[in-house]
Design a protein around this nucleic acid. Sequence first.
DNA 1: TTGGAAATGTCGTTTATACAACACATTGAG
DNA 2: CTCAATGTGTTGTATAAACGACATTTCCAA
Lengths: 184, 184
Amino acid sequence: MTQPKTDPRVQRTRKLIMDSFMELSSKKDFKDITVKDITAEAMINRATFYYHFEDIYDLLEKVLSEVLLVNLNCDDYQNDELNEEALVSIFLAITNFQKSLSNRCHRGYEDTIARIIRDQLEIIFYKMLLKQHKTEEDRALKITAVILSWGIYGASVEWRRDSKKISPEEFIKLAIPYIIPGIK
Amino acid sequence: MTQPKTDPRVQRTRKLIMDSFMELSSKKDFKDITVKDITAEAMINRATFYYHFEDIYDLLEKVLSEVLLVNLNCDDYQNDELNEEALVSIFLAITNFQKSLSNRCHRGYEDTIARIIRDQLEIIFYKMLLKQHKTEEDRALKITAVILSWGIYGASVEWRRDSKKISPEEFIKLAIPYIIPGIK
DNA sequence: TTGGAAATGTCGTTTATACAACACATTGAG
DNA sequence: CTCAATGTGTTGTATAAACGACATTTCCAA
């Protein structure tokens, strides 16, 4: 802990910007949203936007990361080990997240969104692996986290392709025995 | 116009405070709402509250005035003369306003609310009278505005006492011919 | 009744934000 | 093409808001 405690004005302004962005995203396409739109909705100065975010893509990235993280933290399996239950929870969080996104019209930024999701997954997997394998070589754990993040994300893409046929739980459970050793 | 253009930060902060207050009012009784609650909800410092409002009663007053004014401005009869249609609109605005308040649990402040409503009505009636009777004596118009504001407010109280029996439109229309001279 | 926790107001100092003005890129119409 | 309009990003200087400390008041349980 011992965080520097960010200024409440900063927290408030960031929240105003992010909320305004999500509000606008539900109304129009991402490509039609300007910085001016956002700052008008948030009732802040345009210059203030650039004080907090590099540009509108930086904002997109941070908003998506935060939304996804909230989804992931809803179930508190971050303290758990990397078992079947944890993987199922994560997979559900991803599919739910993408479902909520598709309602928000982010067409044309699937690749950006995918990268964000994979980055977040990688962080989470690495943390979990670190808890279970404290003594192992760090590099190996990082590579494993990369593989898992890409693999699980790919599974979510595959699941969406024929989402009518099977629930996400069943879908991911089919593969888990082959992914994680020692699970019956 | 030529207003000094209030600082956007002031507008934003005032809005945050008022919105937070209304949000809290819908959840708990007015007497249980503290300044700290409001500032926490609004994500502002407690000292900032006192920069904008004298105390929580001042806030209540301003919030109610604003909500009522919004109701009154929805129909743009403020340009009209003081005729039957205008009076009906105003009466409906009051009854709607009180209906929305009753959902918000302001028990124990009916007298404060009543005063605020009468004050706002007085302002509006005076403006309308001034438009129609530019040449008349100002003092007479002011007194008339006072009488109308108390009278119309009293009518809304009376209407609420047996609101099942008659619509507010019909209710107020019964008395209008006796109030405004020259209306058939 | 009392003591202490919580709420109310106030004040000086520090900091985030507003504003205005700028240069630059993009776009669309005549 | 040019010109106007619109969006992006960056600077300075002025000011609203945060902080934290303080004195006071309210209130409620021991």
